[in-house]
Every structure is written in structure tokens, then in C-alpha cells.
């Protein structure tokens, strides 16, 4: 079996002798520049975009490096490819169906049973979405797949405008298919640590502000403190 040290030497030789070396160098430099921009910029949308760009460039560099390999079957390549395929498959599968698991897990019920306007409001922002409520006194809301989940505790303490602010925030996540699994997956593929959560939450808040106004969002936030 080829040792890891042999494989590293093989990588270096293959890359050095490859026509793809300029492309690989370009992608790595682009990735580093985008990552530096990501660290420096304060705007949520620029942070998310530069992070996605840096990760995609790095993934491109990894793919180009692999394509230069002339050392036959190598364990590290096989392990990495298996990891990418399995994790991507799980991510794609879960993205489409995880909300069904959540419905069962929380014993969630359609919100139309107790609140008549919520589904129409959310559908105007994100088509074919459905809102569910579940039995929990702690105020909590989250989105997954094509569903928004909201606890009775949240329905209890918020007035209609505040609830609309929360639903608009969650509808943004549905529209952008976010808590973006793609971002998380890119991060996993390149073994970098990143939590885009804060930026995504800020962007969702901005959207909610546009829909219902800043006042409703701020009073909702104040009630949760």
C-alpha cells in the first residue's frame, strides 16, 4: 500500500509537471484573496458571497489537483471522493425531506388550525410553503425545506405584526434555500470552519424589515430578551 508520505511526494511531482499548475495557482490565489476580503468586509451579503467564492475556488483547485494525478489509485483521493459523494448525497437528501422528519419529531400541526392568516402571508413571500406550529412554551421559530415551524410560546407572546416579522424572516430562509446547506457543504469539502449563520440571519432580518417595518422586528426582538 502506498504510504501517505509517498502520496504527498506524488502530489507535488504531479502538480509541478502539470499544465494545470497556472490554473491551480490562480485558483488558490483567488481563494486566498476572497478569504481575505471575507475577513475584512462587514456587509453581510459581501461576507456570504466572498465566503462562497473562496470555497468554490478552493474546491476548483482541489479538483484540478486531483485531475493532474498520474500516480494511479491513491487512498487519499478515494477517501476524499467517497467523503464528498456521501456528504453531498446526505445534504441533498436531507435538504428536500428533513422538514418531514421535523414535523414528526415535533408533532407539528398546520398553523391554519389556529391562525387563519399565516399561510397566506408566507405563501405571498415564498410559494408553496407551509407554516406549522408545535407544542413548546419557549418562543422558537425555524425554517426547513418548504416549511416554517413556530412554537405556541412564540404565538403566545407576539402580536400579529411581530409574528409577521418572524415569518418574513423565516420566509427569507426558504426563498434563498438557506441556512444554506450549500455553504455548509462547501465549508465541509474544504475542511474550513465557518459559521455563515450570523450573516444569513442579518440578511433575513433586513428582508423582514422591508416587509413589515423595523418597529415590529425590534419589538419582537425586545420581547425575546
Amino acid at each position: 500500500m502506498t504510504s501517505i508520505a509517498d502520496e504527498i511526494i506524488c502530489y507535488a511531482e504531479c502538480v509541478n509537471n502539470s499544465d494545470l499548475l497556472p490554473l491551480i495557482t490562480l485558483l488558490v490565489v483567488a481563494s486566498l484573496l476572497l478569504f481575505a476580503f471575507y475577513l475584512k468586509t462587514k456587509t453581510p451579503i459581501q461576507r456570504v458571497s466572498s465566503f462562497a467564492g473562496a470555497q468554490t475556488s478552493m474546491l476548483g483547485a482541489i479538483a484540478a489537483t486531483f485531475s493532474t494525478m498520474e500516480c494511479g489509485r491513491m487512498l487519499t483521493i478515494e477517501v476524499y471522493l467517497a467523503y464528498v459523494l456521501i456528504s453531498t448525497g446526505i445534504m441533498l437528501f436531507l435538504q428536500g425531506s428533513y422538514y418531514r422528519i421535523l414535523i414528526r419529531h415535533h408533532n407539528a400541526k398546520p398553523i391554519s388550525d389556529i391562525v387563519d392568516w399565516a399561510d397566506d402571508f408566507v405563501n405571498a413571500l415564498s410559494e408553496d410553503s407551509q407554516v406549522y406550529y408545535f407544542d413548546l412554551a419557549i418562543p422558537k421559530a425555524f425554517a426547513s425545506g418548504k416549511a416554517i415551524f413556530i412554537s405556541i410560546g412564540m404565538l403566545e407572546i407576539f402580536d400579529e405584526q411581530e409574528l409577521k416579522a418572524v415569518l418574513a424572516h423565516e420566509a427569507w430562509h426558504l426563498r434563498h434555500n438557506n441556512k444554506t446547506p450549500i455553504l455548509r457543504q462547501l465549508s465541509l469539502m474544504t475542511f474550513t470552519k465557518f459559521r455563515p449563520g450570523q450573516e444569513l440571519e442579518l440578511m433575513a432580518d433586513r428582508f423582514a424589515e422591508e416587509i413589515v417595518g423595523k418597529g415590529a422586528l425590534e419589538s419582537a426582538r425586545a420581547k425575546l430578551v
Binding site: 412554551a137 404565538l155 403566545e156
Partner: peptide
């Protein structure tokens, strides 16, 4: 509620939902 010392029901009056 989970430990069965308290119980709750959902009351839906007008536009407000309450435990």
C-alpha cells in the same frame, strides 16, 4: 408539564393563541 406536575391547554380567542 413534561414531569406531569402541571398541565396546559391551548386557548384560541380572537387573534391570540395562549397556553
Amino acid at each position: 408539564v413534561k414531569a406531569d406536575f402541571a398541565q396546559r391547554r391551548v386557548e384560541n380567542q380572537g387573534k391570540r393563541v395562549r397556553y
